[in-house]
Nucleic acid binder design. Structure first.
Lengths: 154, 154
DNA sequence: GTCACTGCAAATCTTTTGCAGTATG
DNA sequence: CATACTGCAAAAGATTTGCAGTGAC
């Protein structure tokens, strides 16, 4: 699955605008790293981005890739898959359920909703493989983080 | 949010049954580790399970926890949050979209569906914090893994 | 009694940090 | 020109592996 050139370029121009707005410097490394991610359709991990950027810019270091990616994430230009940070996490709940994921602290809370359980799977998704279940991930900021932010902002 | 005792015990008896069926030995460590995970409502990571089990069984080692958790995962008794294994992964797609997650290889593919984008957020979820978006995670086995399995099974 | 399972310790892989030099705005 | 950014190297953290002893079946 290839990304259209226009869509990639659109992502890059958003990137430059955002960077300017945040007063952050646009360096060749950052541009190259972002270009890599912006055109990616495979949801790469850090190592993959690094390897790929390295073919075109052999001097970039792995930690620059890390720093750039976290910065992109903080700016909202890319998002993390799942809860993001931290080690592997487990879910002992084998019943149908759904998650509220906090984008700030990474906490995950279960919630139940029978309508969501019986969500109709779009044909688009059916085509990608053998579907076994659905989990709806509601993303936002949890109560605790909201309270903390309110305190700090006061 | 506490888990009802019955539900936890139910999970444990499922565990014992499953273990017997797979011909795997039920050791005190495994039972303790599974008990920990079965009653957890916080989607713990390995370190958290380890720390908690250790308070009741000070001799367990971290690697036993790892081994047991992977085994539980392979048996389908617990599932991994997100794609599971591997490092942090990024998603450069800032448009509303959804994921097909392969439970076998961990690959993630995007798909689009405007009905899902405008999914109504259940009150249950609204109560947990400030909602910013929804991502539907369709879980199953991807085309590639299905093909591989077919080859090996032949 | 057999053989899978455990604990330990060391190896490996992933991510972060401190510092001195470099280059962007 | 100031100072944020980079690369390097080393530290910190997470996960895996090899091996000898132990215990579940």
């Amino acid at each position: 699955m290839a990304l259209s050139l226009e869509e990639g370029e659109e992502r890059i121009s958003t990137f430059v605008t955002m960077a300017r707005k945040s007063g952050l410097r646009i360096t060749p490394q950052r541009l190259e790293i972002f270009r890599e991610v912006a055109f990616a359709t495979e949801h790469p991990d850090v190592e993959a981005v690094f390897a790929s950027v390295r073919t075109r810019m052999p001097t970039v270091s792995l930690d620059t890739v890390y720093r750039t990616l976290w910065w992109l994430k903080d700016s909202g230009l890319v998002s993390l898959i799942g809860a993001g940070k931290g080690g592997t996490r487990f879910d002992p709940n084998t019943k149908a359920h759904h998650h509220f994921v906090c984008l700030r602290c990474g906490s995950i809370q279960d919630f139940y909703d029978s309508c969501l359980d019986s969500l109709e799977i779009p044909t688009q998704a059916e085509l990608l493989g053998a579907v076994q279940g659905v989990n709806v991930e509601v993303r936002g900021e949890c109560k605790l983080c909201l309270a903390k932010a309110a305190l700090e902002g006061a």
